[in-house]
Amino acid sequence: MTTKAPYSLTDLVRYFLRLGTLGFGGPPALVSAMHRDLVAERGWIAEMDYREGLALAQLAPGPLAAQLAIYLGYVHYGVWGATLTGVAFVIPSFIMVLALGVAYVQFEGLPPMQALFYGIGAAVTGIIAVGTYRLTRKTVRADDPLGWLLLGISAGATILTETELLWLVLLSGGVYWLFNRRPGLIRFNTGNSVALVLAQALTLPTDSILWKLALFFTKAGVFVFGSGLAIVPFLYGGVVKEYGWLTEQQFLDAVAVAMITPGPVVITVAFIGFLVAGFPGAGVSALATFLPCYLFTILPAPYFRRWGKHSGVKAFVDGITIAAVGAIAGAVVVLARRQLTDLPATAMALISIGLLYRFPKLPELVLIGGAALAGLLIRYFF
C-alpha cells in the first residue's frame, strides 16, 4: 500500500517530459538528475525508494535510466504512474530522433549536426561529472570504508572493461550484506514467466521486415543488461553484421544521434528502425525495446516495495546501489576519454564543472546552449 504522495501524477509526468526533452548525457546524467531533483531538492521520492529503484534497474535487463523513471512513477501511483512516466520520459527523444532521421535521409549525413554537438558533448561531460560527484556523496557515507572500496572497485572495472558487470553488482550487494550482518535476505522470482513467454516469441518464423525488427529489438530489450550504452555492441552485431540493414557509417551515425539527443541513449533503436523501414520501423523498434524493460520493472516492483525496508534486503540493495554509482562514475571517465579529444573540448568541460560548482542553480540548458555555440565557432572558424 502506497503512502500519500506530496505531488500529483500530473506533476511527475510534467517533470519526466521536461527531463526527456532537456536531459542530455545518457544514463549517468539522467540518473543523477532524478536523484537531485526528486529526492534532494523536491523531496517527492524517499532516498530508500530511489535506491530500490536504482537497484532493480541495475539488476533487470534493459536501459537503466528508463527503468528507474518507470519505477519512480510506480512508487506512489502504481502501474498507471509507471506507464505514464515511462511514456513521458521516452516520447520527447523519440520525436527528436524521428526528426533527425528525416533530416539524415534528406541531407545524406550529419556533419553540421556533429559540429553543433561538439560543444554540447563537452559541456554534458562536465554536467555528468558534477552530477555523479553529488550522487556519490549522497550514496556512500564518509565513515563507510567498505562502501568506498566497493564503489572504487566497480568504477575501476567499468573504466577497464568499458561495460557494466552484472556479476560485480550482485557480488557488491552480497558482500555489503555479509559485512553488515543483515539476516533474512529475500529472493525474488518475479518475471520468469514473462521472460519465458518473450523467449518463446523470439522463435516465431516470419519474413516481414517489421516482424524481424520486432523480434531483434525484443531480444535487445530482454537480454542486454546495464546502461543504454551496453546495447551498442549487441545492435552492431545484428543490424550491421548479421542482417546488413545498415552500413558501418550509418550505424556510427545512429549512435551519434543517441549521444547528441536528450533522453535515454537506447532511443537510437528508433533511428535505426526509421532507416530500415521508415516511420513504422521506428515505432516497432522502440516499442519492442522498451516493452520488456517496462515489464521487468513493474512486475517485481510490488515485491521491492513490500520487502525493501527489510534489514537484509536493505543491506543488499545498498550494496547494489553503491556498485551502480561506482559504475556510473566509471562511465564518466569512459565518456570523457571519448568526448574530450582535444584542448578546446577539455576546456569547455572544465569550465562547465567550474560554473556548476560555483553556481549550483545555474540552468543546465544555459551551459548546453553556450557550449553548442562555442562548438560551432571552433569547428567552422578556427
Rank of each mutant, 00 (worst) to 15 (best):
R181S: 13
A99L: 15
A82W: 11
P300A: 02
L146K: 05
A327R: 02
P6V: 04
T321V: 14
R182P: 09
F89G: 00
T3P: 15
V79Y: 12
L168W: 07
L350H: 00
V366K: 11
H76D: 11
G86C: 11
T203M: 14
L229V: 10
H35I: 04
T190D: 15
T21D: 06
M348C: 05
Y303I: 09
F274M: 03
V317Y: 06
L38A: 05
V366N: 07
F223P: 04
K309E: 10
R14I: 14
S93N: 07
K361W: 06
G326L: 04
F296K: 02
Y7P: 13
E248M: 06
E248S: 09
Y243V: 03
L356S: 00
E108N: 15
P63F: 11
W148K: 05
M348F: 07
I351F: 09
G156K: 04
E47W: 04
S352P: 09
A277E: 03
A258K: 01
E108A: 14
A230T: 01
L229E: 06
L56E: 08
W44H: 10
V140W: 13
T247E: 06
I298D: 10
T2N: 12
M1C: 11
P262A: 07
I368V: 14
A115E: 07
F304E: 11
E162V: 01
G25K: 06
I272F: 07
L149M: 14
G86P: 15
L185R: 08
P111R: 06
L72F: 12
L373C: 10
P292T: 06
L146H: 07
G273Y: 13
A301P: 10
D49F: 13
G25M: 05
Y118L: 01
L198I: 04
A288L: 08
A142D: 12
L171K: 03
L98P: 12
M34N: 00
L68H: 03
R182C: 09
G369W: 09
